[in-house]
Nucleic acid binder design. Structure first.
Length: 600
RNA sequence: CGGGCUGUGGCGCAGCUUGGUUAGCGCGCUUGACUGGGGGUCAAGAGGUCCCGGGUUCAAAUCCCGGCAGCCCGACCA
């Protein structure tokens, strides 16, 4: 066993042969290590509802079973993998000085009313499930900021008890509109979530860095190529936050990554650079021309109206009337060939908003004539390019061409309001960026006092005797999702290829023809016993089935090392060793040291 | 929340258009025999409210109406 890359501290070094790992797993020597007794049924065909490879293989291999949409059972094999992932998380968080606790999954509704987030339940931002019980109304916890804040608040009275970081590994519930991809997006999920409590912002940032680094070590041990990216904070809140993204073809997220410098950000938060200051309008340019464009409200329709190869989407100015988070009317301008990226909390105009702002005409919105109307004009940096635009005329059924920035309209605020695409300029260094499809494996937030300000008792007495609110951070990692992520990144056409760090067993021992050869059976049993005595986690395929079935199942289950005891090898006193990952095979002396039977 | 597709033994599917006796096939399961290094062969079995509820009909898996569930695309999304 080789040390996983990027590990340090207590977790460094090769994993010992002795069983320090499978806590919570099947006890050493348990009959369940014999495949004839293990609760596992492998499937030759994948269920019709499994679309992605990781989902298909986890079901075919008997790791998980679906109970309802987005709700899964972990069968013994899957649970062992889950426990191994959890063990890595515990080791790294404990080593980072965090303390494990277990918060309730059932939360009194009042807690959520106190934080104000109960109002988000109906929304897509925080789809929660409520439960009515004799003791009142409860929520199946979708996240635990409220509970942990009041819990720690009840125990900590003094700055002397800080800093403090606690974590738990818990089941959480989300009323997902559309569960999919097996364990990747579920209604019930297992999550590791940590919460830091500090005296002030500076201390919080230090604690944040500690957990952030621990998370990086966890992903390294899982063999995942993770990229921390700047992100939007959504329903959790706070200022600084990072998502830990694993590039993957089945990802539902995208992040932007600079090819030159270290810049990386979720597309929802990414900005772009490479644009200079707006240039003065060409004084000799012709005036704007108005066109009658009935029934052409959209960008596509206007391009079609001009029916001129020289007029493209990039010549149009996309104008979006929105209401910002504070309720103010804002006109957002982006080049017509770009998707707009609105800041969180902003929404598009509704009918009533148009009625209140007659300077903006639905379907024919343009940037002209917005002075003294109470409408703030914000523009994407791309709008600063030289040349004229085609825009709405703010008059029904009319558009304007030859519209110039600085002559026909003004911009109040410049920013990055267009979605970044591959090839755009990095906002830091100007090099080109790539758009990378990915899975969000974890999300960390610097919350500050967002929760401690509103939850009761979430304060402490500071060194100067004053009362202060905790400065908090929170850190969530999708544990059950990681099972799918690892599977998705580590398989071949025969089945799973588990990294040794999380494999359900280290060795898959198959006896061939033991049913008719007492010698083979005896040798395989003896080898099994020796491995168990040495503390090796071994899955022993003692079933009386044909060799082909055993080989196919071994490939499907993806245990790192396969050992075969058969008549042929036994005659030569050897056991056949094979690596699941590389396919390498070699003969090993049956009575040699156990170490020679493990990974290279 | 919009659009589309699908519900038939544990799993994967056919049958439905054009209603008609005991609803088929593959995998899996049971028993037996043969076999024995990449999902082997043969034989005999078990296992089904054809998603649910109404309706049409002499007769419904099949036609009609209404539900429910699952999946996909989109919207949305700690």
């Amino acid at each position: 066993m080789r040390a996983p890359p990027g590990t340090g501290g207590v977790s460094s070094g090769a994993r010992p042969v002795s069983p320090s790992r499978g806590r919570g797993s099947v006890p050493v020597g348990s009959p369940a290590m014999r495949m004839s007794r293990l609760l596992v049924r492998t499937l030759r065909e994948a269920p019709a509802d499994a679309e992605v490879v990781s989902h298909q293989l986890l079901v075919r291999g008997g790791f998980i079973r679906r109970l309802a949409s987005g709700v899964y059972t972990f069968l013994p094999l899957g649970l062992r993998v889950l426990h191994n992932i959890e063990a890595i998380i515990r080791e790294e968080l404990d080593a980072a000085g965090c303390q494990e606790l277990l918060l309730p999954a059932l939360h009194p509704l009042e807690l959520w009313e106190q934080s104000g987030r109960a109002a988000l339940f109906g929304s897509d931002a925080l789809p929660a499930m409520q439960v009515e019980g004799r003791g009142g109304s409860f929520v199946l916890g979708p996240t635990h900021e409220e509970v942990v804040t009041v819990t720690v608040g009840g125990e900590v009275d003094s700055y002397r008890q800080l800093p403090l970081t606690v974590y738990q590994i818990q089941v959480k519930f989300r009323d997902e509109a559309r569960p999919r991809f097996g364990l990747l997006r579920t209604r019930e999920l297992i999550m590791a979530d940590a919460y830091s409590f500090d005296v002030d912002k500076e201390a919080m940032q230090a604690s944040y860095g500690v957990v952030y680094d621990a998370y990086l070590r966890i992903f390294a041990r899982l063999g995942l190529d993770v990229s921390p990216v700047e992100a939007e904070s959504g329903a959790i809140g706070g200022d600084v936050n990072h998502e830990f993204m694993v590039p993957s073809a089945v990802g539902e997220d995208h992040f932007v990554r600079c090819r030159a410098c270290g810049y990386a950000a979720n597309v929802e938060a990414a900005t772009r650079g490479g644009f200079g200051d707006p240039v003065a309008p060409d004084a000799s340019a012709a005036d704007a021309v108005e066109h009658h464009t009935p029934d052409r409200p959209g960008i596509d329709g206007v391009v079609a109206f001009f029916d001129d190869p020289a007029v493209t989407h990039a010549d149009l100015l996309k104008s979006l009337a929105v209401v910002d988070a504070d309720g103010n009317a804002v006109l957002v301008l982006v080049p017509g060939d770009r998707e707009a990226r609105l800041p969180g909390g902003w929404r598009l105009f509704e009918e009533a908003d148009f009625a209140a702002h007659p300077s903006l005409v639905k379907g024919y919105i343009g940037p002209g004539g917005q002075q003294d109307t109470g409408v703030t004009v914000v523009a994407d940096v791309g709008v600063a390019r030289p040349g004229s635009w085609i825009t709405g005329a703010n008059r029904a059924d009319h558009h304007l061409s030859g519209v110039l920035l600085g002559r026909d309209f003004e911009v109040d605020v410049w920013g990055s309001y267009a979605e970044v695409v591959t090839g755009d300029a990095c906002p830091r260094c100007g090099a080109e960026v790539d758009l990378v499809r990915s899975v969000e494996a974890a999300h960390t937030f610097q919350l500050g006092t967002k929760y401690s300000d509103v939850m009761t008792g979430a304060s402490f007495v500071a060194e100067d005797g004053s009362e202060a609110a905790f400065s908090m951070g929170c850190y969530g990692m999708g544990v059950s999702r990681l099972l799918s992520v690892v599977a998705e990144e580590s398989h071949d056409d025969r089945g799973l290829v588990w990294p040794a760090s999380v494999a359900p067993f280290q060795v898959h021992l198959a006896a061939l023809g033991a049913g008719r050869s007492p010698e083979v059976g005896g040798a395989a049993d003896a080898l099994h016993d020796r491995l168990v005595a040495a503390g090796v986690e071994v899955l022993y395929d003692d079933r009386d089935v044909s060799p082909g079935v055993k080989f196919a199942d071994a490939d499907l289950l993806g245990i790192p090392v396969r050992l075969v005891v058969g008549g042929k090898g036994l005659a030569r006193g050897i056991v056949e060793w094979r690596s699941r990952a590389t396919g390498e095979e070699r003969d090993v002396a049956l009575d040699g040291p156990v170490e020679a039977l493990l990974a290279p």
